[in-house]
């Protein structure tokens, strides 16, 4: 290493790595918004970890990591796309629950197993709120 080469930046706490702020854009027309931070040794690793930590469920179309004045966008939106079907990570991966409920209820009814005990009168409001 020559004298002209700057020493590699050291994290304040060696056990943690450098801290990077993570930004994302929800849609192409949205501005960058901060989504969190993480620790990584360099921008490339920070981008990789940011994708796996904050963008697994279609949270945005682009992401970036930043340290001080330096801003590193992912730059390859296709890295946020999936080569295979990963709908099991999303709400839409579990559709048709209503039909499945009816099927299970029909099976229970055929067995005479439905439990007939007193229930609260109307659960629709509570159920709506819970989703």
């Amino acid at each position: 290493m020559t004298a002209a080469t700057p020493a590699p930046e050291r994290p304040a706490d060696p056990a943690e790595g450098l801290r990077w702020e993570v930004f994302g854009r929800r849609t192409a027309s949205d501005d960058w918004a901060e989504v969190g931070y993480l620790h990584a040794p360099d921008a490339e690793m920070a981008l990789l970890l940011a994708r796996d930590t904050f963008f697994r469920h279609e949270e945005g179309v682009d992401l970036a990591v930043s340290r001080g004045p330096d801003f590193f966008p992912l730059g390859q939106p296709e890295l946020l796309e999936h080569a295979t079907d990963k709908s099991y990570r999303l709400q839409r991966g579990y559709t048709g629950l209503g039909a499945k409920r009816r099927l299970a209820a029909a099976r229970a009814a055929a067995l005479g197993a439905v439990v007939q005990r007193r229930r609260p009168p109307d659960l629709r409001v509570l159920n709506e709120d819970h989703r």
Binding site: R107, A108, A113, V115, R118, R119, P120, L126, N127
Partner: peptide, 22 residues
């Protein structure tokens, strides 16, 4: 309120004979 009616509809019981809405 959220889960017991769903279990009962599927014919699944819970091991508490007192469990019921008052």
């Amino acid at each position: 309120s959220l889960y017991i009616p769903k279990l009962w509809d599927m014919g699944i019981t819970v091991p508490d004979p007192a469990l019921e809405y008052d």
